[in-house]
Design a protein around this nucleic acid. Structure first.
Lengths: 191, 191
DNA sequence: AACAGTTTTTTGAATACTCATTCAAGTTTT
DNA sequence: AAAACTTGAATGAGTATTCAAAAAACTGTT
């Protein structure tokens, strides 16, 4: 129905604008008016759709979390071996549509704000647990059990660390290089 | 001279208060009044000593950067082999006096704000380059040259990733465990 | 197709704050 | 007496959110 469609279109537009605007100015500093301007709308309309600035940030993160989940599912579909599936998890993190400076910036802002917002920290917990269980499942098939936890920490922290760096980057990112580097890290950890 | 001393005492007190207050509330949200209250001083006195909120944050990060540098130098003093020195670099990151939730919180806030502040991004660049060159120097002695860069990325991102996680923690951290885990990661990467 | 009624969407302006910074006037230290 | 320090209160700038009213998009009916 068109009822749903208009709402969905606005949601999409406003979330895209949020990613750009927050990247440009930082979550704590960006104003509703700036985000609205980026979307060609008014600040009041953001509240109409999302209720508040926090609601907008939560919706934006839900959007990115879903994107990450989809990227991972897509990779899993074609992976056949544990190692391939492990590559797939890493590749999802550095997928073309995901591994961009604006999106890494948002993740950075998300991490920085999660400890102070129940709604955000909930999302953080859920996402992290999901990635963790996927990585663990594959590692168990590839390493002796006493090395599994160490390898998981190494890989999961690696992914976070790369995003953290990417958020500081002034240039455009190269997702392909990032995936290749991630594969080399996997190969280093699991010979 | 006592001229210097009183200023140094206040600086120390206010920086400690900043770490606690920013940890509790987040840099973007915490007010000068809250930081001042944490230190038992007035908001005006912070401006007297640091000029502005940004100046306070910069001074706080300089303080933590120096602490990290000192911890690393101390570790280097007793390390004899490249591997021991590599351990020392990691250990400095997870030293008892450094690896606490409030301090990891500040690092998180620092990372999130660095892209929007020349003064902060400068500190970030300097610190990162320093750690990078130390890690590289040791890895060159331990790995074939075509693996050095991959291992460096893996280890440096690991350190950042662990701090990122630590900032989300609701419990007290255990630096000793963190150091042991870091050693295992080093051993995994460099058999 | 045209219309009147209804619902959804949009926004300019008003509201009701909050906060960093300044400063003048005191207090303490040298 | 001079210099360094401290702060309460004033200043001034800024902002999320609300709201009433207008515009646009639908609805069913003729």
């Amino acid at each position: 129905m068109s009822r749903k469609r208009i709402r969905d279109i606005r949601n999409e537009e406003l979330i895209e604008a949020t990613i750009v605007a927050v990247h440009k100015r930082g979550y704590g500093v960006v104003t509703m008016a700036e985000i609205a301007q980026e979307a060609g709308a008014s600040a009041a309309s953001i509240n109409y759709y999302f209720g508040s600035k926090e609601g907008l940030m939560e919706a934006t993160m839900l959007h990115l979390l879903a994107k990450l989940r989809r990227a991972m599912s897509a990779g899993y579909a074609t992976a056949r071996t544990p190692r391939e599936r492990l590559y797939a998890v890493m590749d999802a993190n550095f997928a073309d549509g995901l591994f961009t400076v604006p999106q890494c910036s948002i993740w950075m802002q998300f991490w920085a704000n999660a400890p102070y917002s129940q709604r955000l920290s909930r999302l953080h917990r859920i996402n992290r647990a999901r990635v963790r269980s996927h990585v663990l499942a594959e590692l168990r098939a590839l390493l002796p059990s006493d090395q599994v936890e160490t390898a998981r920490q190494a890989l999961q922290c690696y992914m976070d660390g790369v995003w953290l760096q990417a958020a500081q980057s002034e240039d455009v990112l190269n997702p392909e290089n990032a995936r290749a580097a991630a594969h080399r890290v996997v190969d280093l950890v699991i010979p």
